[in-house]
């Protein structure tokens, strides 16, 4: 196993912290993807990749930020941008995909999917919603 040349003067605590966050981030991404393959239905599967996009990305971004800040080789702009970008965009893609899946399942009349404009029977709010 070759050592990393440009990390020669990294202090031990920083190396350990970087290793810790790298291992945490990569393991969470892997666990999320394993769950993505193993879970049986689409609506359960949609939860699995959020593991990789929340703390999977967070861990690796954190590792990279510690690494380059301690070595002070370059400013850590890219990591912050990637972090913000992933946090903002993942919910958008997941919501759109979930709505597309709901729409398709309803159009085909698949069982196990709540109907459009769910009735508020237990709430007793008399707001009549007509479903087309």
């Amino acid at each position: 196993m070759s050592t990393i040349e440009h990390a020669g003067d990294l202090p031990a605590w920083a190396a350990l912290a970087v290793s810790f966050f790298l291992v945490i981030g990569a393991s969470l991404a892997l666990i999320g993807t394993i769950g993505f393959v193993r879970l049986p239905t689409f609506y359960e599967r949609i939860h699995a990749p959020t593991l990789g996009t929340s703390w999977g990305t967070g861990g690796i971004v954190m590792a990279s930020m510690i690494f380059f800040t301690v070595l002070s080789t370059r400013p850590v702009v890219h990591e912050i941008l990637i972090g913000i970008f992933v946090t903002v965009t993942t919910p958008v893609t997941l919501m759109l995909l979930a709505r597309a899946a709901l729409h398709r399942d309803r159009a085909e009349g698949n069982p196990g999917v709540p109907r459009e404009a769910p009735a508020q029977a237990e709430e007793g709010e008399g707001e009549a919603v007509t479903a087309e």
């Binding site: 050592t3 990393i4 350990l16 291992v23 690796i60």
Partner: peptide
């Protein structure tokens, strides 16, 4: 010592992510 740990954890992370990509491709 800490350099070795760092280098091993990077290899571990790379292997994990490659397996994750392969699993995603399998699901695809």
């Amino acid at each position: 010592m800490s350099q070795t740990i760092l280098s091993w954890s990077m290899t571990f992370a790379q292997i994990c992510l490659v397996i994750a990509m392969a699993l995603a491709a399998l699901r695809m």
